[in-house]
């Protein structure tokens, strides 16, 4: 890209200077607990008594753990459905709310408001106002003479309501998209208009490639985030992953083993399996990125 092809020298010294705080954090804060959790994965550790090495027992236990396999299924379903939906909603609204309309600030804030609730305890109660037996959704169905049910507490539909809940809080990726859109120089669009390019062409030829690093970022992070999804299921199901394990996310299961069943050794092993799964997905993402993410370097 560069018109000025001067020879770059390696910037090791400057780089390590810039990375100094990060390295310090890695060594002093992150490394210890990560190493400890790895070692604990090969122990039987009930939190109260000292851990006891048990070799690969935790690994063999995973193979026969039906609830774990179920939790994996729930988590994969959730990741594969909710991430694309949420990103599409976020990108669509970000483009709609980017510029050239009255009341943008208002809509942006309004759409972000649900995401502000975060992991508030209130979420559990509020979500019931929509998808509970007496919630808004059932009142809407009543208008058409249909009778609903408690959507959150029916094992057939509980996971879907959590997916909707996740899509509902698309505020974070939306804001990142907005910031990314703002980084695209207006002149590109202006030039394209001069060339007579339509809206769709502009989107395909300018917005998509120039936004691709940000789309990629959102994709990678939302996938990681969705695999670790915990809070919403925890709050909505009261920590149980119910009804009947239908919202038993991987991290929720891991948490229950660790803290409710005093089974922190197994929980640590589970955490490392999750790390392997997420790392594989992320590596896949980075590999695929070479084909579609456009960097200016």
């Amino acid at each position: 890209m560069s018109a000025l092809g001067f020879v770059r020298k390696r910037d090791d010294k400057a780089a390590y200077l810039f990375l100094l705080p990060w390295f310090a954090g890695l060594v002093l804060i992150t490394a210890g607990p990560v190493a400890a959790s790895f070692v604990l994965g090969f122990t039987d550790y009930n939190l109260i008594q000292p851990p006891r090495f048990n070799g690969l027992e935790n690994v063999t236990r995973m193979l026969g753990d039906d609830r774990l396999h179920h939790a994996l299924g729930v988590t994969f379903t959730y990741v594969l459905i909710s991430v694309p939906l949420q990103l599409a909603a976020a990108l669509g609204l970000a483009m709609l709310l980017d510029r050239g309309m009255r009341g943008l600030a208002f809509y942006r804030s309004a759409f972000y408001l649900p995401s502000l609730l975060g992991s508030s305890v209130a979420i559990a109660v509020l979500w019931r106002q929509i998808f509970g037996a007496e919630g808004l959704f059932n009142q809407f169905l009543n208008l058409f003479g249909l009778t609903g049910r408690g959507w959150i507490s029916d094992p057939d539909t509980a996971l879907s309501t959590l997916i909707v809940l996740n899509v509902w809080t698309f505020g974070a990726p939306m804001v990142i998209f907005l910031a990314g859109l703002r980084q695209i120089p207006v002149m590109y669009y202006e030039a394209a208009q001069v060339d007579g390019a339509g809206k769709f062409t502009q989107f395909r030829r300018i917005t998509l490639p120039l936004l691709s690093p940000i789309i990629f970022f959102n994709l990678v992070l939302q996938i990681i985030h969705a695999f670790q999804s915990f809070t919403q299921a925890f709050v909505v199901s009261g920590g149980t992953g119910g009804p009947s394990d239908s919202t038993m996310f991987y991290t929720l299961y891991l948490y229950q083993r660790g803290f409710h069943n005093f089974d922190m050794g197994y929980a640590s092993a589970l955490a490392w399996l999750l790390l392997i799964i997420i790392a594989a997905f992320t590596a896949l993402n980075f590999w695929a990125a070479k084909k579609w993410v456009f960097y200016d370097d």
């Binding site: 990060w22 607990p33 948490y255 929980a267 999750l274 790392a279 992320t282």
Partner: peptide, 17 residues
């Protein structure tokens, strides 16, 4: 490595931390 550090859930890190 940096990306890897966000892949472990907090629940197994909190006790050693």
């Amino acid at each position: 490595v940096m990306l890897g550090t966000i892949m472990l859930p907090i629940h197994v890190l909190i006790v050693p931390q």
